[in-house]
């Protein structure tokens, strides 16, 4: 890993030239299990990018369980995602609130509206459609736990998605399940060309024509491989385009760091699809204390090993999203 280099355009702190606004780069932070640090990483990655002079909007899409604002040290927020659905033409940029941190703002998910946790289809598509309209350099989506369709679709809406795991069995199992679900969801989404989708549909539905019933993604690939290896390779490359970035959080020793490499090897063997190991973050007992004090970690402990790793991962993610 190279030395840390965060400021890539020193002459341009902040605002992009106005010539035809470029859409923001969208990063998602997901991973099957709850409590693995998604909101913490999203918030601090946002701070790290904002510190380099980039404009960042954090979007809390863990609706119903949102606490991204807490990781930023913010209290009650008046404007939230719920307001987005109060009027048909509500501009998404009006949802953005300040965070007291330069260049960093937030669209909060915190809300007392009961039904916000269960977004309807049109509400979800409204959000996804409007994400590129956010006026900023980077949008970071903080996703909820689990593999609900809404979560998967938000993940797929990003240009680059991070999967967070901690070195313990439940988290790793859930992450595999999450990745599988993302793959399955993408195969049925309109991100795949209609002709390929037709082929995929036929393979998945082959049991109607007396074929074998496919239950897992591996079954699916097995059948596709049998029918036509080229199609299988094509589908794999489509899924590889998701460019999943793995981050191992709360590592204690070098063995935990190796888990990221093993995870990558296992994914390649099992799915035949490559993912990237974007980095790891050390366990740091002071995190709990800063969270209790409702302070943003990266600003409270800028010199800590964890902060430096967070900045490095933010840098890695911002590089991966360009390609």
């Amino acid at each position: 890993m190279n030395t840390l280099k965060l400021v890539d355009s020193p002459e341009q702190p902040g605002h992009l030239p106005e010539e035809g606004r470029r859409p923001p780069k969208i990063l998602a932070v997901g991973g099957g299990k709850g409590g693995v640090g998604k909101s913490f990483i999203a918030a601090n990655m946002g701070i790290a990018l904002a510190k380099t002079g980039k404009r960042v909007v954090l979007v809390d899409l863990d609706l119903g369980g949102s606490n991204l604002h807490t990781c930023l040290g913010l209290g009650h927020i008046n404007t939230t995602m719920s307001d987005f659905f109060t009027a048909p033409r509500y501009p998404i940029n009006d949802l953005i609130v300040d965070t007291n941190i330069p260049h960093l703002s937030l669209i909060s998910g915190a809300s007392n509206t009961l039904d916000i946790a269960n977004l309807q289809h049109f509400q979800k598509t409204k959000i996804i459609r409007n994400l590129p309209k956010i006026e900023t350099d980077y949008v970071i989506l903080d996703l909820g736990a689990g593999t609900a369709y809404n979560t998967l679709d938000f993940f797929l809406a990003a240009d680059c998605g991070m999967v967070t795991v901690t070195p313990e069995p439940a988290s790793i199992e859930n992450s595999y399940r999450f990745i599988k679900s993302v793959f399955m969801r993408k195969l049925r989404s309109n991100q795949i060309s209609s002709e390929l989708r037709e082929v995929i549909h036929q393979i998945m539905m082959q049991h109607h024509a007396g074929g074998r019933r496919l239950k897992t993604l591996a079954d699916f690939f097995e059948e596709t491989e049998k029918a036509d290896p080229l199609t299988a390779a094509w589908i794999r490359s489509e899924l590889e385009n998701i460019r999943i970035q793995l981050v191992v959080n709360q590592v204690l020793d070098s063995g935990d760091i190796e888990i990221g490499h093993s995870f990558k090897v296992a994914c390649k063997t099992y799915f035949g699809i490559g993912i990237d190991y974007a980095g790891y973050l050390h366990h740091d007992p002071t995190v709990l204390q800063t969270l209790r004090n409702k302070k943003p970690f990266l600003l409270e402990n800028p010199k800590s090993r964890l902060s430096i790793s967070l900045e490095r991962i933010a840098h890695t993610m911002s590089e991966r999203v360009v390609k």
Partner: peptide, 13 residues
């Protein structure tokens, strides 16, 4: 390392 005994990353797949 990926397939070693008690590997966290292999057993569930």
């Amino acid at each position: 390392e990926t397939y070693k005994q008690n590997s966290l990353t292999a057993y569930s797949l």
